[in-house]
Computed example of a mutant assay.
Amino acid sequence: MHKQLGLALALAVAPLAASAGEISYSYIEGGYAQLNQKLPDVAVDGDLARIDDIEAGGFFIAGSAELGESFHLFGGYKSGSDDVGVTILGIGGGSADVDMSQLNLGLGYHHGLSERADLLTEISYLGTEVDVEGENNEGDDARLAIGVRGLLADSLEGWIKGHYTDGDVYDGEFGATVGAQYKFSPAWGISGEAELVDDTSLFTVGLRASF
């Protein structure tokens, strides 16, 4: 009886879990995120201020939902904080608390190039906030991305995308995103991603559940 019940449960769940050897566009994930921003030196009352780069560590959550055979919705939220050092030549130095966050929402189209690789096209919205000692700065941007996602092995997939972003924070800037996922079971895997755009970089590593 217990064996039959176990088999029935396994067969009921099996259609919901992506196999280790296929690309899934329905998943949720979360983990550690780091948001980096290079900052230039600035002048303060005629004195040069040297500002450390922001390296805001925190968390991220993200997900994707497949719509039919070719489209998918995706989104995510990244947040981190850092204590940034500032040195004003001839005066002294100090630090400031900085909080950074970014929300992204988008629609993607995927088309099979082969049994193990898809061509991706994505359009998305980015909302970025930077809070410096309680002073909030925010901006909205639009992004167009084109890339490839495919299976490097039955349990390992990777993706690479080039993108163009324009709006309040990104001023018509080109960038790239690379990522990978190692699946240690049909439903669960470890994912990592790096996004590079001019003086901004975002890194994530986390746990992904595919459906």
Rank of each mutant, 00 (worst) to 15 (best):
Ala117Trp: 01
Gly90Leu: 13
Ser19Lys: 12
Gln4Glu: 13
Ala43Cys: 07
Thr87Gln: 15
Ala8Asp: 12
Gly80Asp: 09
Gly93Arg: 12
Gly106Asp: 14
Gln4Asp: 13
Asp83Gly: 05
Glu22Met: 00
Leu73Trp: 12
Val98Ser: 00
Asp83Gln: 06
Asp45Asn: 08
Ala43Ser: 15
Lys78Ile: 07
Leu67Trp: 04
Gly127His: 12
Ala65Cys: 06
Thr87Asn: 14
Gln34Leu: 14
Asn36Ala: 09
Ala62Trp: 10
Leu11Thr: 05
Met100Asn: 06
Phe74Ile: 13
Ala117Cys: 00
Gly90Pro: 13
Gly80Ser: 10
Ile88Val: 15
Glu66Lys: 09
Ala43Leu: 06
Glu129Val: 13
Ala117Ser: 06
Leu113Thr: 05
Gln102His: 09
Asp45Phe: 04
Asp99Asn: 03
Ser70Ile: 04
Asp131Ser: 14
Ser81Asp: 04
Glu29Thr: 04
Ala10Asn: 06
Gly93Pro: 05
Asp83Val: 03
Asn36Met: 14
Ser79Met: 13
Val44Thr: 07
Glu29Met: 03
Ile51Val: 09
Gly68Thr: 05
Gly80Phe: 10
Ala10Ile: 09
Arg116Asp: 03
Ile51Phe: 08
Asp131Glu: 14
Gln4Cys: 12
Gly30Val: 05
Leu39Ser: 11
Met100Ala: 08
Ile61Thr: 07
Val130Trp: 06
Phe60Thr: 07
Arg116Ala: 00
Ile28Cys: 04
Val44Phe: 12
Ile23Glu: 06
Asp47Leu: 15
Gly94Thr: 08
Leu5Pro: 04
Gln37Cys: 00
His110Glu: 03
Tyr27Gln: 13
Leu7Gln: 06
Leu35Tyr: 01
Tyr109Lys: 02
Gly112Phe: 11
Leu119Thr: 10
Ala33His: 11
Ser101Val: 00
Leu35His: 05
Leu120Arg: 02
